[in-house]
Design a protein around this nucleic acid. Sequence first.
DNA 1: GTCGTTATACGAATGATTTCGTAAACAAAC
DNA 2: GTTTGTTTACGAAATCATTCGTATAACGAC
Lengths: 125, 125
Amino acid sequence: MADNIKPTEGELEILNILWEKGPSTVRTVHEVLEKAKGSGYTTTLKLMQIMHDKGLVKRDSSSRVHIYEAAISKIKTQGQILRKMVDTVFAGNTMQMVIQALGNHKADPAELEAIRKYLDEIEKK
Amino acid sequence: MADNIKPTEGELEILNILWEKGPSTVRTVHEVLEKAKGSGYTTTLKLMQIMHDKGLVKRDSSSRVHIYEAAISKIKTQGQILRKMVDTVFAGNTMQMVIQALGNHKADPAELEAIRKYLDEIEKK
DNA sequence: GTCGTTATACGAATGATTTCGTAAACAAAC
DNA sequence: GTTTGTTTACGAAATCATTCGTATAACGAC
């Protein structure tokens, strides 16, 4: 499973929908995408078929209406993309990236507190 | 200047080199890239010309050997890519992304301390 | 000047991603 | 059974990124 997952932009949009909604039909996914960016039904279908070929999604084709499901974990995929981004954009410097993320984002006190708690946890180990 | 900058993978590699080395010739950039991935001289040249067309780099062509320089700021570009990544991969949830980044990365005490200080600063404002 | 070297310019091939038109399969309604 | 609508399958066009071959121009050494 040590795959080099690299979903494209469009594939990621679909994965996000599947992660959120769980196993879904093409139509369900398409309806979200149509609202978001007005793409056509067959476009979504084709993308999902390609994703199936690549192993990014599983599908149950026992009935006429196929049910698609994400085949890769959200956390793992996020982690992989994140790590790559840090490498290519921040020269591997995670801390610099975190600082900048915190700087851009207007965090409210609760969020800051959550991070502090998390830092404590890391430190304990 | 509120551009929708979106350097490709290859363009980003070149930008990183230019940010690090400052204004450089194609040859200089090429030599780094050749070591890193064995690409050819004209490949680098073409990419840099495209980047010039797109406005990603400036160049001084007053002498035979053109001098290229990044036209977009490192911080700004990093911030833009980061924000987009958070949006598409983490559904806009910066905090979740930060937590995950900290979790993946084995931070040493000094780094943790730096973040705490930074959190304090944010809070003061 | 001519020759060899190094530079830029141009165009085209390749491959990946995204998009969609059209066909075929199927089911439900009539 | 025929029509209508929904679904999947197939293939091809359009776009973009990457790569490189070849042409052309400029410079320095001789």
